[in-house]
Nucleic acid binder design. Structure first.
Lengths: 225, 225
DNA sequence: TTATTTATGATAGTATTACTATCTTTTAAA
DNA sequence: TTTAAAAGATAGTAATACTATCATAAATAA
């Protein structure tokens, strides 16, 4: 028997649930590939339709526009990651070990283990690094937020913030430190690979160094108190 | 007599130097206003031309496309900020005080003091917060970087990294900490105003709290060593 | 089983975007 | 005063970001 993880997505993100049809799953699968290949700016529903072998109108029946699709993919990723974290930190009772594990999960490229799923997590990870912030860096961020589009991201941040507080109950900035860890796990990776002089890892290009940096940053902050 | 600061821009960023003509200065001035109003996605050269009272073709004689214009504005901002930092930390001999000043300058909304300049720095500051990362979060980041488009950003980062090292010569991640401070000064501001639950400053919405957070983050990291 | 809803395919069409080209007039420099 | 450079005016094109319509296939309900 194979267990399959199912993430319940916010219904306002799509017009027709992409998980309920072959075409829908193809849209998710191929959009991850195409965004990964061309970048979000050059990505269009027309190209996506050609890749899938359907028509532009077909895609529009699922997603209102490419922004909603990006928000969908990022929301899916954060929800998936929160599950990964809860799974991998389960039974750990030492919050410091928990937080270390979280940092590792945030900063490590995942493998696409579950062949069953229509989403290639390792490719999606790269997309989130390069395109993820575009989901909220818009003029509509307020409305999108009202519609709870960023709930998975905020939930993840809350989880990490709670672990931080468990490590150090007197620490004053658990949420900001959480969002800093999450963003920097990705930005340092992007910088390391694309603008290496903005990091100290330009030579090795090893994620392990990002993890070491974040651990140092976080645990000196928390131990001190 | 009025001194005017002049920032020498990378020539590959424009087709015709916008600083050398009234139209060019108008392009800079109005693009800052229009991007601030509509956001970068909805910003077009056509709307900009209408705002200025010129034609689309007129804008294209200065900038190849809106991406180059955004990169120009961000480069200008980082160069300007580096000058602000060197100006305001001049004669400070205590590196810790210097670094504190840098953090304050990074996280504080500037006022548009010099009425002479055609760039409204306080408006530009908001644009950099909301749109700045889009300058490098693209597929062309490699080529853009080869053409030195991000030099002002990298220079600023190097300056901050050097101050960090002056504070603590044994610290292992000066560049990554520098880019973290720079990015977080802006992201925490964006979050505070738009996705407040990602920060600890949602209630007060005070920049001073971001500064306090960054100071805490940085100086516990550096003191420890 | 047929009737009917629902999803998809095929095709067309529109407004806007992101440009390029050309020609004329104005402005400024030699 | 000549001449070159910048700006204005206008036109045009390919691609993007959609919307609409109609036919067909597949799934579901009567």
């Amino acid at each position: 028997m194979k267990l399959q993880l199912h993430i319940k997505m916010n219904e306002a993100l799509f017009l027709r649930n992409p998980e309920n049809s072959e075409l829908g799953k193809n849209i998710l699968k191929h959009s991850v590939q195409l965004i990964g290949k061309t970048g979000f700016e050059a990505f269009t529903f027309k190209k996506l339709a050609e890749d899938i072998g359907t028509t532009e109108a077909g895609i529009y029946r699922y997603f209102e526009n490419k922004h909603k699709l990006l928000v969908y993919l990022t929301a899916w990723y954060w929800a998936w990651l929160e599950f990964q974290i809860s799974f991998h930190t389960n039974n750990m009772n030492e919050p410091i070990e928990k937080l270390k594990r979280v940092i590792k999960l945030l900063a490590t490229a995942v493998e696409d283990d579950e062949k069953t799923s229509y989403i290639d997590e390792s490719l999606l990870y790269k997309i989130i690094i390069a395109e993820g912030s575009k989901a909220y860096l818009t003029k509509q961020v307020g409305e999108d937020n009202k519609q709870q589009f960023f709930k998975p991201y905020k939930d993840l941040c809350a989880v990490v913030g709670a672990i931080i507080l468990a490590c150090c109950p007197t620490y004053k900035y658990p949420k900001s430190l959480a969002s800093t860890i999450i963003e920097m796990a990705h930005f340092q990776n992007f910088f390391m690979n694309n603008l290496p002089s903005l990091t100290d890892f330009g030579e090795s290009k090893e994620e392990s160094e990002i993890i070491a940096f974040l651990n140092d940053l976080v645990f000196t902050s928390l131990e001190k108190k």
